[in-house]
Design a protein around this nucleic acid. Structure first.
Lengths: 345, 345
DNA sequence: CGCACTCCCTTAACCGGTTCAGTGATGAGT
DNA sequence: ACTCATCACTGAACCGGTTAAGGGAGTGCG
């Protein structure tokens, strides 16, 4: 992959035109002291006339900042393609990065090992100034990797999963408990949960919290199923849950994302069950999608865009060193009741 | 944004350990001739022992390849957050980039001017080796920009919009015509289209094709509405179309993406209209979403993932110079009938 | 008048690679 | 024995910035 030849304007050209040295131009463009106002003006004028902007590659090499942050996402492309959560998260991250003229280096990887390799080579190759780590699992190898490399990161996940890394997280356990309590308060005694990928740490946390809540409330029935977050898996899980005869059938189902909830809605319709009369459905990661269905989906909603923004802000703090390692909880998802939840008949 | 200090292994260390010069290491790692097998082995062994990988920044600066390609997406973040098309497209692009150990530099921009600035600074700053340009509009300023810069790009859009740039495109006009003919063949005489953003070139192409098809078939009624691709806009448009009394009401609606079609489905339900008995709906950009609704959505389907992959492959061709400028049509979307289309009552 | 102190700006080394001219050793050809 | 290639490798310049050290001019002060 070789670049096409193009005559490029360099700092030397600007310096020559402004009648100063390269160093002076550098000082001006980094807003460092030691230049008179008039020289500064002349330099900026010359740069503007030549259409010059500092070469970031050279700047990086010379050892100052790196204005790229990395994000490697480890999930099959097909699933990712549909998950609104990711795009909202990315757009939140982007919104903050853009303010700093910083870009996002995105890479889809097939597994954790590949991610470990990508992060290491990005950092060693000075491609990134820091990274965002998502989808933690128990004993995640990235914790050790990051420490070995000295790579500045923000981990998205519960502190119990992210080791000593600076983390930003939502309190999934509390949210799950709230969801179950809400359904129980409506009168549901048989509640199911269609969870995400079993390997992920936050799925395990939700699973445990669900069990505990179900026990505390002494529910008559509590089921949990693991999926891969895809709509198809959500549909399959729902179908199998609703197949049982009424006394053994859940009257309410909680989903781990919104796409599976949409799928569940359609399965209920296909099976001739009315929502919410015959079965209540509760989505997670409230995206626009939840308001576009009929009935609209009640959801545990959650400002994913703002979450992404907070992650990016924290990462800047880590990179500049202003941020002491620690954990940043963001507001717990709150229940937004809509048309898909009601007392059981 | 300053990087944390980390002792890094450089080419010099590897050279010293292997007892050769920097140049020799460089030759070895670029698989260039001029080294004996034994020296080559010694170099690779030394590199492995030290955990060294070439610094991409330095490599880039020294004037060889750049293994990053750019993508600036120009749309309000909220909308992007929801469009499955983009994530599928990105994942298709990624799948090919990954084979070449190449990453995607992603940036959300608010308008075309900003995109022009971003592309220019990426290229001038040698941040990217090439770029993918999407969402063309009439007289798009990017055509001229790219030629001025000499930036290798692939334009996603009809050749009439992308000037002399190498382009990859789907035949929207034919697809729209096919959609209208299909609905007409079912017996529909009053057909509406809920289009995308009016400023976009492909929207204009679809709009013109719809008009022409409607004329050719002498439909009794043909309406078109422009939106911003969001679910809310799709819902509003549908509501206003279906508000008219039966003789003036469309019996079939075509949408420009799938998220608006989902919204349309829910509006029909909300208004007490049955789909497809009272009104047929036809989606575009067939994502998994179309199979998750009830009824399932008929759609003009289209391998978006493969489309992204083709775009990436073409871009590699352009960057290496193997690719003569030209236009690459990919297969026209084909109609996939499902549960949301039927003859009118 | 001489000295110290600022203020502005220049110089040169450096970041970590690539590349190319050049060097010495070896072998073939005459 | 001498030239001429070929091969394997080295050395130094270079990519386009940053940065620390240094230098010259102008001012304040004893």
């Amino acid at each position: 992959m070789t670049a096409a030849p193009t005559p490029r304007v360099t700092i030397k050209d600007v310096a020559a035109r402004a009648g100063v040295s390269k160093g002076a131009v550098s000082l001006a463009f980094n807003h460092k002291p030691g230049l008179s106002e008039s020289t500064r003006d002349r330099i900026f004028r010359a740069a503007r006339e030549l259409g010059w902007a500092p070469n970031l590659t050279a700047r990086t090499l010379a050892g100052s900042r790196v204005d790229v942050v990395g994000l490697a996402v480890c999930r099959p492309a097909r699933v990712l393609g549909l998950e609104p959560w990711y795009m909202e998260f990315v757009s939140g991250v982007e919104s903050v990065l853009a303010e700093h003229s910083c870009s996002l280096l995105l890479r889809l990887v097939r597994n954790l090992d590949e991610e470990v390799g990508v992060q290491a080579s990005w950092w060693r190759g000075r491609q990134i100034g820091g990274s965002i780590l998502v989808d933690f699992r128990a004993d995640d190898p990235r914790v050790g990797l990051v420490e070995r490399l000295g790579l500045p990161v923000v981990a998205v996940g519960h502190p119990s999963l992210t080791g000593g890394l600076t983390s930003v997280w939502t309190d999934d356990a509390t949210a799950v408990t709230e969801a179950v309590r809400y359904l129980a308060a409506l009168g549901h005694r048989r509640i199911a949960r269609v969870g995400g990928a079993a390997a992920l740490g936050h799925t395990a946390i939700r699973t445990a919290a669900f069990d505990e809540a179900a026990g505390a409330l002494a529910l008559a029935g509590a089921w949990q199923v693991a999926t891969d977050f895809s709509g198809d898996a959500g549909a399959r899980a729902t179908r199998s849950l609703l197949t049982a005869a009424p006394p053994d059938r859940p009257t309410a189902i909680v989903y781990d994302n919104d796409i599976m909830a949409v799928a569940g809605l359609s399965v209920a319709a296909e099976m001739g069950l009315r929502v919410p009369e015959d079965v209540s459905l509760l989505a997670w990661d409230d995206s626009q999608l939840c308001r576009l269905t009929h009935p609209t989906l009640s959801a545990m909603s959650h400002d994913v865009h703002g979450f992404g923004a907070e992650v990016a802000r924290t990462l800047f703090g880590v990179i500049t060193g202003d941020e002491a390692a620690g954990s940043h909880p963001v507001p717990t998802p709150v229940l937004t009741p809509r048309g898909s939840t009601a007392p059981p008949r």
